[in-house]
Amino acid sequence: SSGGSSILDRAVIEHNLLSASKLYNNITFEELGALLEIPAAKAEKIASQMITEGRMNGFIDQIDGIVHFETR
């Protein structure tokens, strides 16, 4: 797709992000992006959206560029 990722790509990214949230206590956007094979800024945006929508527990430290995952 030309304008970003398809629905399937997005679903795969979100699935992998949720998997990462179970493996890590926290991770930088750079590391997360590398893990998900997407730019760091996109990793931040998707993580932020999932947390806001209540689909993933955690919070974002924008100063240090880190996602902190919280286990249920």
Rank of each mutant, 00 (worst) to 15 (best):
residue 20 A to M: 12
residue 48 S to F: 11
residue 25 N to Y: 10
residue 8 L to D: 11
residue 44 E to L: 15
residue 26 N to A: 14
residue 19 S to I: 14
residue 9 D to F: 04
residue 68 H to E: 04
residue 14 E to F: 05
residue 58 G to P: 00
residue 55 R to F: 05
residue 66 I to A: 06
residue 21 S to R: 03
residue 44 E to H: 13
residue 2 S to G: 11
residue 3 G to P: 11
residue 13 I to P: 01
residue 64 D to M: 15
residue 22 K to L: 09
residue 55 R to P: 01
residue 40 A to Y: 05
residue 65 G to L: 05
residue 25 N to A: 13
residue 37 E to S: 15
residue 1 S to C: 11
residue 9 D to H: 06
residue 17 L to F: 05
residue 7 I to F: 13
residue 70 E to G: 14
residue 1 S to R: 09
residue 23 L to W: 07
residue 17 L to M: 13
residue 39 P to K: 05
residue 27 I to Y: 04
residue 71 T to I: 08
residue 47 A to Q: 01
residue 71 T to L: 08
residue 27 I to Q: 02
residue 44 E to F: 14
residue 40 A to D: 03
residue 60 I to A: 02
residue 65 G to N: 07
residue 17 L to P: 01
residue 59 F to E: 05
residue 41 A to M: 08
residue 26 N to P: 06
residue 39 P to R: 03
residue 64 D to K: 15
residue 7 I to M: 12
residue 13 I to F: 05
residue 56 M to F: 09
residue 6 S to Q: 11
residue 26 N to D: 05
residue 2 S to H: 12
residue 46 I to Y: 09
residue 56 M to S: 01
residue 42 K to R: 14
residue 32 L to P: 00
residue 71 T to E: 09
residue 12 V to D: 08
residue 26 N to S: 15
residue 9 D to R: 04
residue 8 L to Y: 13
residue 69 F to V: 02
residue 53 E to V: 05
residue 60 I to R: 01
residue 41 A to F: 09
residue 2 S to L: 08
residue 8 L to P: 13
residue 45 K to E: 15
residue 64 D to C: 14
residue 34 A to V: 11
residue 33 G to F: 02
residue 24 Y to C: 05
residue 62 Q to V: 14
residue 72 R to Y: 12
residue 42 K to T: 15
residue 10 R to Y: 13
residue 61 D to V: 08
residue 34 A to C: 08
residue 5 S to N: 12
residue 62 Q to S: 13
residue 63 I to A: 12
residue 36 L to N: 01
residue 27 I to K: 04
residue 42 K to E: 15
residue 50 M to V: 02
residue 35 L to W: 07
residue 60 I to N: 01
residue 18 L to P: 00
residue 4 G to L: 07
residue 21 S to N: 02
residue 15 H to P: 04
residue 27 I to A: 04
residue 11 A to H: 14
residue 9 D to N: 07
residue 8 L to M: 11
residue 55 R to G: 03
residue 66 I to S: 09
residue 40 A to N: 03
residue 16 N to Q: 11
residue 13 I to A: 05
residue 32 L to Q: 00
residue 25 N to Q: 13
residue 45 K to W: 13
residue 69 F to W: 06
residue 51 I to F: 08
residue 36 L to Y: 04
residue 62 Q to T: 14
residue 9 D to K: 05
residue 36 L to D: 00
residue 11 A to D: 11
residue 33 G to R: 02
residue 37 E to C: 13
residue 53 E to H: 06
residue 56 M to V: 10
residue 5 S to G: 12
residue 68 H to N: 06
residue 44 E to K: 13
residue 66 I to T: 10
residue 13 I to K: 03
residue 68 H to Y: 15
residue 43 A to I: 12
residue 30 E to H: 08
residue 52 T to Q: 14
residue 45 K to H: 11
residue 4 G to M: 08
residue 41 A to N: 09
residue 43 A to K: 00
residue 50 M to C: 03
residue 5 S to R: 08
residue 31 E to Q: 10
residue 17 L to R: 02
residue 56 M to K: 01
residue 7 I to W: 14
residue 43 A to W: 06
residue 35 L to I: 09
residue 48 S to K: 12
residue 51 I to P: 00
residue 48 S to T: 11
residue 15 H to Y: 12
residue 42 K to D: 15
residue 46 I to G: 00
residue 50 M to H: 01
residue 63 I to D: 09
residue 14 E to C: 05
residue 34 A to I: 12
residue 5 S to H: 10
residue 55 R to Y: 05
residue 1 S to F: 03
residue 47 A to M: 06
